[in-house]
Design a protein around this nucleic acid. Structure first.
Lengths: 183, 183
DNA sequence: CCTCGACCGTTCCCTAAGGGAACTGATACG
DNA sequence: CGTATCAGTTCCCTTAGGGAACGGTCGAGG
C-alpha cells in the first residue's frame, strides 16, 4: 500500500507530515526527549510492538532525528540518541501538548505539567511570530510561494477560513487554476 | 488491527498524537486552514482516496475540529468548517512548517513562505515559553505530574537527553519504578 | 559446564487500513 | 435527454500494524 509519499510535495507541512504524521514516531520522539535511549526502554514504556519499534527507529535514524551509537561491545549494542534535528522537534511536541491541554483535558486537569528551567516556571508552549513575537492565529496568516516553489509565480494565498462566511461560499479554494498542483 | 489507542494515556502528547499522528489528518487540517471546505476540493487538492477522506472528515467532525454545516438543500450538501478547536491546531502546523524549513529543505529554499498580516512580515513560527517568552529547548524542560495524573506523587521528570553523556548511561529511564505506567 | 536473564532484534500469522477506481443518487443545466 | 456537479459508497487487492514466539550474544551465578 505504501502510504502515499507526501515528502516530495512542494509544501513544508506535507514533508514534515510525511515523517511526523505517525503516532508512534511522535511517541518515540517524546520518549527520546524524556531521555529514553534503549530499545527495551522504548518498547516497555510505550507498549509498542517490537517490530514496529524496529521500523520506526530505523526510519528516525535514516532521517537523522536519532543517532545510533554503540554503547557496548560484546555483544555490540546500540542506543538511540537525539541529534540536533531530532531535538528540534521538541517544540512541535510541546505545541501539541499545549493544544491537548486546552482541548483534550477534562475537569481533572492536565496529567503533565511542563516546567521551564530557563525561567524556573511551569509553562505552556506558545507559538509566536518570529518577527513581532505575537501568538499566531490562522486568520492572520497567508501562505505564498517561496524560492523553492516549482512554479515561481503561483500565488496560493489562502482564502478566508472564517466559519461565519455566507453559505455557498467560494469553492475550488485551494486550486484556483485547476493545475493539479498537490500541496 | 485498530492502531493502538493512546488517547487514554495520561499524557497530553499521547492524546494529541492519537489524533494528529496521522499524515492525512495533518494535511486535511492544513487545507482547512487554507480555506478548503468541500469534500471535492479536499479530495482533488490532496489526491487522497475518497474513502480515506470520508473517514478522516468524519473523525475530525466527531472530535470537534471541523463542523459539518449544510450549505445547500436539494440535494442536501455539507461543507466542513474549522471550529475554534480546529483553528487552534494551526500553530502546530506552523511549528511543523518551521521545522521542515530548517531541516527538510534543500538549497533551493522553502517552497512556501508564511506571511503574518498582523505585523505584515514574512515569518517563521517560533515556540516560546508562556512565562518568559524565550524559545524553548528540550534541555531546559522537565515534565512533572499535573493535577490530572493518575498517581499524584509520581514524578517523572526527565533524564538527561544529552548525547554527550557517557556510554552505559542510565537505562530504565522513563519508568523508574517499573510501574507499567504507559505514558 | 549449564542455566538464566538482559538486550536487541527477527519471524510468523492474521486482521485491518490504505489506494485505485468504478458506481450511486439527487439535482441543475442546456 | 444527455451531461455535469457534488458527496459519498462499494469492491478488490496490497501492505502495514499488532501479538507473540523465537534467535543470538554475552555476563553472572550455581
Amino acid at each position: 500500500m505504501t502510504r502515499t509519499d507526501t515528502s516530495g510535495w512542494p509544501c513544508t507541512i506535507a514533508r514534515s507530515a510525511d515523517l511526523l504524521g505517525d503516532g508512534w514516531v511522535l511517541l518515540v520522539m517524546r520518549q527520546a526527549c524524556l531521555g529514553v535511549r534503549r530499545f527495551e526502554d522504548f518498547q516497555r514504556s510505550l507498549g509498542i510492538g517490537r517490530k514496529i519499534l524496529t521500523i520506526r527507529l530505523k526510519r528516525l535514524v535514516d532521517e537523522g532525528l536519532l543517532g545510533r551509537v554503540e554503547y557496548q561491545h560484546n555483544p555490540v549494542r546500540h542506543e538511540y540518541r537525539l541529534t540536533d534535528k531530532g531535538r528540534d522537534v521538541y517544540p512541535i511536541l510541546a505545541a501539541m501538548a499545549a493544544w491537548g491541554d486546552r482541548w483534550l483535558t477534562g475537569p481533572e486537569g492536565t496529567p503533565l505539567v511542563l516546567h521551564h528551567t530557563g525561567c524556573d516556571h511551569d509553562m505552556q508552549a506558545v507559538v509566536v511570530c518570529s518577527n513581532c513575537a505575537e501568538p499566531i492565529h490562522v486568520r492572520e496568516m497567508r501562505a505564498k510561494a517561496g524560492p523553492g516553489y516549482p512554479r515561481p509565480d503561483n500565488d496560493i494565498s489562502k482564502l478566508d477560513p472564517d466559519d461565519e462566511a455566507p453559505p455557498a461560499a467560494t469553492s475550488a479554494a485551494a486550486n484556483p487554476e485547476g493545475k493539479e498542483i498537490r500541496r
